[in-house]
Design a protein around this nucleic acid. Structure first.
Lengths: 112, 112
DNA sequence: TACTTGTGCAACCAAAAAGTTTCATATAGT
DNA sequence: ACTATATGAAACTTTTTGGTTGCACAAGTA
């Protein structure tokens, strides 16, 4: 089984779990109560999040608190960033083209 | 079937395809020749990329050129960005804490 | 026209993913 | 000690994925 961050965040339920624990650690049950699938299903999602490093579990008595490791998302951020330049450059050149076009129209207007 | 950008980039082959056509549009066969799975398999990956808006196909004679729509990745970038502040803030506070600790040690040294 | 090339797509298959029920176990509270 | 709570995990089922082969078809080319 593949277990990378990309695959982990592909599932909407797992993204939701991450969102829930992003600001505040929650125990397993509290998280699963917010979904309409079984606790076991949520537990499995958490396992995947843990295995790819997006989450860590800290035992506290009989409860286990889930803490988000959002730094791990930098892996995704980095991958996206390598393309950000390309797509913004393209948008820039489109913008430049439009500006050029506009300037041309203006000078043509001036010639009337 | 779900067909969102997150799910699309979850597969390493699809990420590779995106990388191949990021700078330059390529026709279907050229892309598939670079993988050791069948053309049909690659075609399916392309279909997914197309369906979620990460790619568009432009017919040219009997060939079809695949063009990457990297802007679509902004959806992922935005999602990651909402967490970036949280994780950098945490790292910042850790850094501050360490700085504080260091300053304290220094002042204690001074008291010796 | 006949042949080659570039693609789309159906039919089918195996493996992985996502969910369910059920049971075991450890800890907290009475 | 007994009971309720929090959780881990096995066994099993259903869906979704990712891949394959094979065929149809349109567009260039000899």
């Amino acid at each position: 089984m593949r277990r990378d961050v990309f695959q982990a965040i592909a599932d909407p339920t797992r993204r939701e779990i991450l969102g829930m624990i992003a600001h505040k650690s929650l125990n397993v049950n509290t998280v699963s109560e917010n979904f309409d699938v079984s606790r076991a299903a949520i537990y499995k999602h958490m396992k995947i999040l843990t295995e790819c490093g997006l989450m860590v579990v800290k035992q506290q008595g009989r409860e286990r608190y889930c803490e988000a490791k959002l730094e791990k998302l930098s892996e995704v951020a980095d991958w996206v960033d390598q393309y950000r330049k390309i797509w913004t450059d393209r948008l820039d050149s489109l913008e430049n083209y439009l500006t050029l076009l506009q300037a041309k129209h203006k000078s043509e207007d001036g010639n009337k």
